[in-house]
Computed example of a mutant assay.
Amino acid sequence: MHRLQNPRRGYAWGSPTFIPRFSGERGDGTPVAEEWMGTHPLGESTAALDNGDLVPLSQVNGPLPFMLKILAADRPLSVQVHPSADIARAGFDAEQSAGIALDDPHRSYKDPNHKPEMAYALTTFDTLVGFRPTAEILRILHGLDAPLAARLAAELTEDPGFAGIVRLVEQVLSGSAKAEDIEAVVDACAAQVRRGLDVKRAYATVLEVSEHHPGDPGLVIALMLNRLTLQPGEAAFLGAGIIHAHLSGMCLEIMASSDNVLRAGLTSKPLDPTGLIECLDVGMSRLARVTPTLFGTSTDVFAPDVQEFALAVGQCSAGDRGGIELPMSEHRVIVCTGGAVEIVNDADERIALARGESLYAGPRDGAVRVAGLGEVAQAYLPPPDGATGTSLVDLV
């Protein structure tokens, strides 16, 4: 086992307090958006060897197929989509051939991998994810006294369904919706909220987001997306091709080892509306919550139907005299999410973890047990037979 040191990202939407407090540190007032745990070349963890040396984690047992993040949002993230494997490979090869540097902010494909991901809430976590049904979008648009809303409603009435919704998104992102048109939609949302009228939090969401991104086309897209609130301990799966925009809160994000993001609003980062439209997947237009299965007596396993990752969250106490066992895997990243614990491998090697601290366990560590009073989350490569698989439940 190897204790980890992990890089952080200070994006503008990050929280100055969530991650520092989670790790028992005093923040300096600057946003801390993400902490990365894995071997992605743009933000690789370092592993502590027995002699105290620090080496890139990939030197221990090779690259990991997954990446685990702590994500902390004080402000909304961009409207975005992650590509499928085929699109990611083609996009990466094209940008490589064009000689675009990996760290170029205008580059869309940082690696050739797809990026399915799952969010596991550490605090109350709000997100927008997946298109609402056509009928619901029409109810929302018809309730707004604004020319842009009326025009979009008429077009969706003539061309309903997923393809029609995507065409509305294309139109909004084409520049035809001017800032004053969008502000009129926001004003109409405010009027409905003052009347106590809303449709599944659509209008209230636009008002919340508009405080940070006035006049942004992403506000109109936000009207069309499902609003979901995860409570601590709940998880949601976002497959490649599903449109989403996280709003606020802290979560663990586990994903295929990729940093490919196509953005189309609610951000100061470069946009790729054409790429986002290309990546949208009709089969992933609705969100799925992840229902955990029980491993042992104290561990919930969240395992969506992907090959690259699963997440096990275990709680231990004085009642577990021998500790609790976590699912076995060749590759495991374990982070303490509460209390103080001790991780023990088959060779009886022990590493103590406080909240926010993490380690890597490889195939030679065998079965890993957790003792103490606290909670841990283990990101790991699931078995190919899906023995710890879980079910997905549609949001709507």
Rank of each mutant, 00 (worst) to 15 (best):
E158L: 14
E158P: 04
G161R: 13
A163S: 14
A163V: 13
G164S: 10
V166E: 11
V166R: 12
L168C: 14
V169K: 01
S174H: 01
S176P: 02
A177C: 03
K178I: 12
E180N: 13
D181M: 02
I182Y: 02
A184T: 13
V185K: 00
D187I: 11
A188H: 02
C189I: 06
A190Q: 04
A190D: 05
V193E: 13
R194C: 06
L197D: 09
D198Q: 09
V199I: 15
K200I: 08
K200T: 12
R201N: 15
L207I: 14
S210A: 15
E211C: 01
H213F: 15
P214C: 09
P217M: 08
V220D: 02
I221G: 05
I221S: 03
I221P: 01
I221F: 01
A222T: 14
M224S: 05
M224E: 04
N226V: 04
R227Q: 13
R227S: 14
Q231I: 11
P232K: 08
G233S: 06
A235D: 07
F237E: 01
G239H: 04
A240M: 04
G241W: 02
I243C: 02
A245Q: 07
H246F: 15
L247F: 02
C251S: 15
L252M: 06
I254G: 03
M255I: 13
M255D: 02
A256E: 04
A256Y: 02
S257M: 05
S258T: 12
